[in-house]
Design a binder for these strands. Structure first.
Lengths: 230, 230
DNA sequence: TCAAAAGTGTTTAGGCTACACCCATGC
DNA sequence: GCATGGGTGTAGCCTAAACACTTTTGA
């Protein structure tokens, strides 16, 4: 069978991307959802998604979709899983590649609300979602937990400078479990990937907490993979 | 925009699956490759793959492809990653979902050789592969290493009964590093997921090594996820 | 009797966990 | 001066790593 026969007789499918966008407001881990504006299921909450074009990779499609929603270009983004049940979208056969993104919620909160009917939902208050998006979100949360334990991606969810209590809150939110303050501090600082600033954050306490910044150079001097974070 | 307009104006893409099939012969970890029999790159070594049909999920497509090659139905199989670079297949735009499978090499070795131009290659002697299949294999190996440390999937690569030295060989092959025999034995046995048989394997030593079998019931009494194996 | 692989315990070091009090500051 | 959250040290436990000799048996 030659190439024309083989390739041309095959089924062609709609391919989509859906983005699970996580943000952290200092207390809660949240996901960004939009109101779906096409049928079927118009008006239900949904992950942000879109179809993959002929001339772009799924990574590029996911970046395009995220950029369209948030204006962000260089967010941390990672492919999650391909969802392909035949009847996952009742309107048509659509294979969807799910991506998850981590963004710093503060910087983009307002812009998002202005431009789209989008809202941040705490992970324990997610509404019913269209199709298999609930499953996608569940899987994304799982992956985030795994990932954050071994790679310094948690910092993507925080502003450039952050306090140790904020960082601990983030890890507690991701793991859904309280952590010991002294053990947490010791372990993070012992990795030697943070730089302490002179400046203090004074909004959430009278004493104030020192700001730290993540030092990518220091980190890259560790093993690229496999460093245990928490 | 209504559903007809939205869905019908989208690009439709060829979607394929490619299977990274791992086997273990008691000493080496191997991958099953086939000679590609269509253009482009006819005659080059390749992962086993095929196009996804309109009426099947990618999981089903991967099972179909694996079954076609090996006759196996119920192998351990897991989705690996979606590869979607626009020019990954020079003949046409094809999005490929890669799967990796673990099979017991001994039971199926002859059948495979008879029916297809397929061969087992040790992982350190993989030939040039078509398209991005080298990258797929690299990623599969990485995933196997991660996975086998936390879940008892290594047993899928062994016959139903196996000796501790065989099991250790397997882990050494996957991790590409020697392990201490005493520490290995103690750790595996302490998990209490193996049953020792009376019978000994006598081919590879004069003394003989006791056979063990993996006990799925005992295992499922442990946490479903998150047990550290090695 | 020798060669070749199987089987078996102990010691040590490092990391993880649990735990409670003082500090700095704004009101 | 008091309420609030920030910051700090130690001791016990457990797990992981290092390490060498004896056993079995076929040739």
């Amino acid at each position: 069978m030659d190439i024309i026969t083989k390739y041309n007789t095959q089924d062609r499918l709609l391919v989509a991307v859906d983005c699970i966008i996580f943000g952290f407001d200092g207390h809660q881990l949240k996901a960004l959802l939009v109101k779906r504006n096409i049928d079927p299921d118009r008006g239900k909450w949904s992950l942000m998604g879109g179809f993959v074009h002929q001339d772009e990779s799924t990574d590029e499609a996911a970046q395009r979709v995220l950029h369209h929603l948030t204006g962000l270009q260089t967010t941390y983004m990672e492919q999650l899983y391909c969802f392909s049940n035949v009847d996952r979208d009742p309107a048509s056969r659509v294979v969807s590649i799910a991506y998850f993104a981590l963004i710093n919620i503060k910087d983009y909160q307002e812009r998002i609300h202005d431009e789209h009917e989008a809202r941040w939902f705490p992970l324990d208050q997610i509404p019913d979602l269209v199709f298999d998006h609930t499953e996608m979100l569940r899987k994304a949360k799982e992956r985030l937990q795994q990932k954050v334990a071994n790679q310094p991606i948690g910092f993507e969810l925080l502003p450039g400078k952050f306090t140790l209590p904020q960082l601990q809150n983030l890890y507690e939110a991701i793991y859904e479990t309280p952590l010991d303050k002294r053990n947490f501090t010791r372990k993070i600082l012992s990795l030697d990937i943070l730089n302490k600033l002179e400046e203090k954050e004074k909004e959430s306490s009278r004493k104030g907490a020192f700001y730290y910044v993540f030092d990518r150079d220091k980190f890259s001097r560790l093993h690229q993979e496999g460093v245990k974070f928490i």
